[in-house]
């Protein structure tokens, strides 16, 4: 990077047009997670036990399954955005940065897919 003023270097490159998108989605998911995570935690507390029957009965109830799907989708999204920022701030080598960002993104995709699939399977096969 050489020559010109800071303004001169920035002019003409155009706007990426998504300056605050990441920040905004992080906040929207945070707001959604306030009731969702609270509901999840209190539901776990209210379970009669963590045995197979109690847990699958809880997950399989229609509204529970819907709220769990919303919770899983929102929490993995929020988590992906948050961990991404931490990596961008603290992992400095270009190669390691890209590699760890990819790894984190794929891992979050896996968690979301597995979590949603598990909830739907329990909900659709529960008697």
């Amino acid at each position: 990077m050489k020559g010109g003023t800071a303004l001169g270097r920035a002019l003409g490159r155009g706007s990426a047009r998504n300056g605050v998108h990441h920040w905004w989605v992080q906040r929207v998911s945070a707001v959604a997670l306030v009731p969702l995570s609270l509901w999840f935690l209190l539901s776990l507390l209210a379970l009669p036990g963590f045995d197979y029957a109690s847990v699958t009965t809880f997950i399989g109830a229609p509204w529970h399954a819907v709220l769990l799907c919303l919770f899983i989708g929102t929490v993995t999204w929020h988590s992906q955005l948050g961990v991404q920022v931490v990596i961008e701030d603290y992992v400095h080598g270009h190669g390691t940065k890209v590699a760890s960002l990819l790894l984190v993104q794929f891992a979050h995709g896996l968690v979301a897919a597995a979590g949603l699939f598990a909830v739907l399977k329990i909900a659709f096969t529960a008697s």
């Binding site: 197979y52 847990v55 699958t56 997950i59 899983i72 929490v75 993995t76 988590s79 948050g82 961990v83 891992a107 979050h108 896996l110 968690v111 597995a114 979590g115 699939f117 598990a118 909830v119 399977k121 329990i122």
Partner: peptide
């Protein structure tokens, strides 16, 4: 730390399924 905990949440749900 909670992001790492999500892996466990997924394992728990998959086990139940």
């Amino acid at each position: 730390a909670l992001a790492a905990g999500l892996l466990l949440l997924a394992c728990w749900l998959m086990a139940a399924a």
